[in-house]
Computed example of a mutant assay.
Amino acid sequence: MLFISIGIAIAVVAAILLIAIPLFFRVVVSTNEVHIVQSARKTLSYGKDTGNGNTYYEFPSWFPLIGVTKIVLPVSVFSIQIEGYEAYDLGRLPFVVDITAFFRVNDSNLAAQRVRDFTDLHTQLEDIVQGSIRSILSSRNLEDILQVRSELGDDFTKSVKEQLKNWGIEPVKNIELMDIRDSKVSQVIANIMNKKISEIEKESRIKVANNKKEAQNG
């Protein structure tokens, strides 16, 4: 009888463990994330609108056959802000720009193939945006950049859109040129603005003088 009782107790404990252990590894994906889970046999995305539900079991990767690894990416819109980026115009005149870009993950499985985690994705997107900024701004004169700065966002966005497809990412709206200013060692923009002010003042003085002359002749 004792052996039977011990056997029943062991069976009960084993049954409890078989139920409890999987629950310990059960993951529920939040509504603003997607988890890309890689097992020995396949890769699946879990979360809202993935078609695979929002729960899975995250057994450690060292578990034979059932072990998995995962990458967590956002499903909501996220931003990348590049501040104080040192750029040059066509004539190698230096200046500094602030850029804001908004993206979303369009293909989570593709994105997971290209990056280790969201931090890695963020870094790679920064590099892509910076490359676009550098290429476009260096093809224009600074005076032109100052005049058409509102149009540059469309140029930035078009230049990165095709590249982003390779990362499973898409821009949500045009990349914005938030600010353009002189660097700490340059007064190029200040000189351009002073020149513009001087030209406006000169035109104003000429116009006033012409008006007075016409009034006297009249």
Rank of each mutant, 00 (worst) to 15 (best):
Y56E: 02
Q163P: 00
I136R: 11
I6H: 09
V208T: 09
V96L: 05
M178A: 12
Y57M: 07
L65S: 12
P171Y: 08
L2I: 11
S61A: 15
G67H: 08
V37Y: 02
K195P: 00
K184R: 13
A101K: 04
Q38R: 15
I169E: 02
N54Y: 14
L142P: 00
Q187I: 04
L23D: 03
V28R: 13
L137P: 01
D117G: 07
V27R: 15
F59H: 06
L164Y: 10
V185N: 13
S132D: 06
E203M: 11
K212H: 07
D89K: 12
S138G: 01
G53K: 10
S5C: 06
H122I: 00
R181N: 01
N54V: 01
A40C: 01
Q38I: 02
L2N: 07
Q38N: 10
T100S: 12
A101H: 04
K196H: 10
L2D: 03
S150Q: 13
M1G: 06
R134M: 04
I36H: 01
V172I: 14
I8F: 15
L73A: 09
V208F: 12
F59A: 05
L142N: 02
L90H: 09
D89T: 07
V27I: 15
I133T: 05
D179V: 02
G153C: 11
V97T: 03
A112H: 02
S150G: 04
